[in-house]
């Protein structure tokens, strides 16, 4: 506890505070939460500051628990040491993620999306955990986390648990986070060798996404395996393009596969018209970007 302000300095203290005052809002980078009018800010509920909690912050490699030390079929197997996971604390900013060596080398699409979120000023404040909990359909990092098969770590008064990202983000601005719970970290499994990402935004910077595509895959003898393709801003939550993935699975890495997957992607999304774009455009751009990324990945 901060002796001057009485504010929590540890996750346990924060959880206790959330139990005592269930309407308490846990603040992180605030780049979305502070965008509200003067009256809403004046009438805001009590807040705590997660940025002051050291254990929520930072990037580290952690050992894979032996029970989970399995690898995707077809990947080069190393029977001796299970590869480490990358644990990214919930309040790690995109500015930190953007330049972290382990991210840049192992998960380049995460570094890339981090560099395309808002502006430098936003990246210096916005946190990975905040992007997850905010659960916007246009949350930039979310399709990347889905493609990378990320898991999230949640702390509750009863202990900690880990769930896959797609079991976390349930609907439009709706997550699996229960009352009194905190998202504490994101865990990335060992990096897939092929990764690609594209954000189609409203302009070159400080843009909101119209369409996002993130993909990650392995390959063996010139064929795709373990393909995961995720799309953002085309549905209330980021979605896997399972038909496109299916086209790729075991298929040769070539133009025909890319084109066929693009057609499959076209057929499996139902985007909407909104202030930023049209359904027609989103579907068209999504399909073309899927093809392009498969050609370039």
């Amino acid at each position: 506890m901060n002796p001057a302000s009485g504010l929590p300095r540890t996750v346990d203290e924060a959880l206790l505070r959330l139990q005592e005052r269930p309407d308490t809002v846990a603040l992180a980078g605030c780049t979305d939460w502070m965008v509200r009018d003067r009256l809403a800010r004046a009438d805001a509920p009590p807040v705590i500051d997660l940025l002051a909690i050291e254990e929520l912050h930072g990037i580290e490699e952690i050992a894979t628990p032996p029970s989970e030390a399995k690898r995707p079929a077809g990947a080069d197997a190393d029977p001796t040491t299970p590869p480490p996971l990358l644990r990214i604390g919930a309040t790690t900013t995109f500015g930190e993620i953007r330049v972290d060596r382990r991210v840049v080398e192992g998960y380049p699409i995460l570094a890339e999306v981090a560099s395309q979120i808002g502006s430098r000023q936003i990246q210096n404040r916005a946190t990975l955990g905040g992007n997850l909990v905010n659960a916007s359909p246009a949350g930039d990092s979310l399709p990347v986390l889905l493609a990378l098969a990320a898991e999230v770590e949640i702390a509750s008064p009863d202990g900690r648990r880990r769930i896959p990202y797609d079991a976390f983000h349930l609907g439009y601005r709706e997550t699996a986070l229960g009352p009194g719970e905190l998202l504490t970290a994101v865990l990335l499994p060992p990096p897939p060798p092929h990764q690609a990402f594209r954000k189609v935004g409203t302009r070159a910077a400080v843009a909101i996404s119209k369409v996002m595509v993130a993909m990650a895959a392995h390959s063996r003898q010139g064929r795709w395996s373990s393909m995961r393709i995720a799309a953002g801003s085309v549905a209330p939550v980021p979605m896997r393009l399972r038909a496109a993935e299916k086209v790729c699975e075991g298929a040769p890495i070539d133009v025909e596969t890319a084109t066929e997957a693009a057609e499959a992607a076209w057929g499996e999304v139902e985007p909407i018209d909104d202030v930023r774009s049209t359904a027609r455009y989103r579907r068209w751009a999504l399909s073309r970007v899927v093809r392009r990324l498969l050609l370039e990945m």
């Binding site: 001057a4 302000s5 780049t31 210096n124 404040r125």
Partner: peptide, 27 residues
Amino acid sequence: EGECGACTVLLDGRTVLSCLVPLIQVD
């Protein structure tokens, strides 16, 4: 709302938008 940058200041040496920084996080 964090779109224009006219309120940019340095917080702990990094550029931030002061319209999005709550006082609690300045301590």
